[in-house]
């Protein structure tokens, strides 16, 4: 109970700040009106309703998605430094953006978002297949290696294209640092749906993922099928990360920083951990976004940069506290 209050209160605060604070501060009264008795003629309400509210939703999708995906990723790979990006999701999404920009000229934001989710999904399917997940031969190490290899391949293809075509580079460089600023052009409803499906899969599979974290021999002795559990977990990770990248672009470090925090708070109960990661992830990204909008107002620092600024020192802290041997 204390845990829930301690987590939900900051989230509510972060949400309120997202809606209220900005270039133009909105009062609480405007907030109430915009949410419940919306008047499209009032500019303050319009800002809240059609700019900040989508931003809030996108932040929740991206933050919760990356936080949960990171937690499941680290549980499945038994690696406290594993990032959901290792499955090639971000690289796949980036590649989709580049291909889209190349083929369609300069696509608008909505088009980019439509391309990133399938790009992300295809990339992680490729990682499953390369890593041998279908035959059950995939250990965490093989999957990670397959992810690293695919990442390198896609990034080199991306570099090849953006070096040659400056109009593609122009599209790519704005996409590649994640941001919530274009939230109102992104498919928020669809991505909420994919995130919910991913979360459902993860919650269902959680007890089996816990068994898998004891090693595949013991997991099989406990009546689970490691290959199948791994597949479900990876599908959940893909849905979650794909949703996040489609609404906000790549966000650095969130999937890496949230899991160790939530592990500490939820004592190895994976379902609790998933919930805690979702709340923490959303809180962090919303706060980072709000700070990014305030420090250089009226301009803004993109949230992908803010999370990296906060995340890198936090990550170093995590690495320094790791016990030797924790990676094996």
């Amino acid at each position: 109970m204390k845990l829930i209050l301690g987590l939900v209160l900051p989230l509510v605060l972060a949400m309120a700040l997202t809606l209220l604070v900005g270039v133009q501060d909105a009062g609480l009264g405007n907030l109430w009106n915009a949410l419940f008795v919306f008047d499209p003629a009032d500019p303050a309400q319009v800002v809240i309703h059609s700019v900040r509210l989508p931003r809030l939703v996108a932040g929740c999708i991206a933050g919760a998605g990356l936080g949960m995906a990171g937690t499941i990723m680290q549980a499945v790979t038994r690696n406290p430094l594993a990032d959901p990006g290792l499955l090639g999701v971000n690289a796949g999404a980036a590649f989709a953006v580049v291909v889209g920009a190349l083929l369609l000229g300069s696509p608008d934001n909505g088009m980019i978002a439509a391309l990133t989710f399938p790009g992300a999904a295809l990339a992680s399917v490729a990682v499953f297949l390369l890593g041998g997940a279908r035959t059950g031969a995939a250990g965490p190490v093989r999957l990670t290696l397959a992810g690293v290899a695919l990442n390198a391949l896609l990034l080199s293809l991306i570099s090849a294209v953006i070096l040659a075509r400056s109009e593609v580079l122009e599209v790519f460089r704005f996409w590649v640092t994640g941001s919530l600023a274009q939230a109102n052009t992104r498919p928020l409803l669809a991505m909420t749906g994919t995130l919910v499906i991913g979360t459902g899969l993860a919650l269902l599979a959680a007890p089996r993922i816990e068994a898998l974290a004891l090693g595949s021999a013991l997991a099989r002795g406990l009546g689970t099928r490691p290959a199948r559990v791994q597949l479900v977990a990876l599908a959940a990770i893909t849905l979650m990360t794909g949703s996040a990248v489609a609404v906000a672009g790549p966000i650095a470090f969130l999937g890496l920083i949230v899991p160790p925090l939530s592990r500490r708070l939820s004592r190895h109960h994976l379902r609790r951990e998933i919930f805690v990661s979702a709340v923490l992830g959303a809180t962090i990204i919303l706060l980072a976004d709000t700070v990014g909008r305030l420090v250089v107002a009226p301009a803004e620092i993109r949230v992908g940069i803010m999370t990296a600024l906060i995340g890198a020192p936090a990550f170093i802290l995590v690495v320094r506290r790791l016990k030797p041997g924790a990676l094996t």
Binding site: A75, A213, L214, G215, A217, L218, G221, H268
Partner: peptide, 9 residues
Amino acid sequence: ILPQSPKGP
């Protein structure tokens, strides 16, 4: 079955 030298989180 308990495998040899199991390892937990």
